[in-house]
């Protein structure tokens, strides 16, 4: 049993300490907005925040998050009102959508660290997140819009 906070609420997951956080979130807690893409930390589809830092949940053992604050796409805002979510809609970024929770969570970390990132800074920060539909240029535009419009 490992206890932590998820999207502001206390949660306990009855699983082995080595269980990847990804499966605890998706299948134990049924928060399925966080996606399984590669299971090896290579694609970023499973990106969530642990104590405010973006991590790849497929490589994060449950034991390492005991007592910590985990935030997923479901906890980013209650009503899709986070500036990045609004910008993602305005720029019509999404295609298949499967990687986008991870993209948005990764971008949210960036804007927290750097409210006005340059294009190069955006690319450097986001390069670990694969989008197979190739929405990269729109993701950049949406992050810039979110930075601009707040």
């Amino acid at each position: 049993m490992v206890s932590f906070y998820i999207n502001g609420k206390q949660a306990s997951v009855n699983a082995e300490p080595a269980t990847p956080l990804l499966w605890a979130i998706r299948e134990h807690l049924k928060l399925t907005g966080t996606k399984f893409g590669c299971g090896a930390g290579l694609c970023g589809a499973c990106t969530v925040h642990v104590n405010g830092k973006a991590v790849k949940s497929c490589l994060t053992p449950l034991s390492s998050i005991a007592g910590k604050l985990v935030n997923t796409i479901e906890g980013l805002s209650e009503d899709s009102s986070h500036p990045l979510q609004k910008a993602w809609v305005a720029e019509q970024v999404v295609q298949c959508g499967y990687c986008q929770s991870g993209q948005i969570m990764k971008a949210a970390e960036l804007l927290k660290q750097n409210p006005n990132p340059s294009r190069d800074q955006i690319v450097a920060h986001m390069n670990g997140n694969i989008c197979r539909c190739g929405t990269y240029t729109r993701i950049i535009a949406a992050i810039q819009r979110a930075a601009r419009e707040g």
Binding site: T32, F36, I73, Q92, V93, V94, Q100
Partner: peptide, 20 residues
């Protein structure tokens, strides 16, 4: 605007892998 986008930015869009 595409109809699927709002639910794909907040994690509610359902893929078969999400079925419980």
């Amino acid at each position: 605007p595409r109809r699927d986008i709002p639910e794909k930015v907040n994690g509610t869009a359902k893929y078969s892998i999400d079925v419980q």
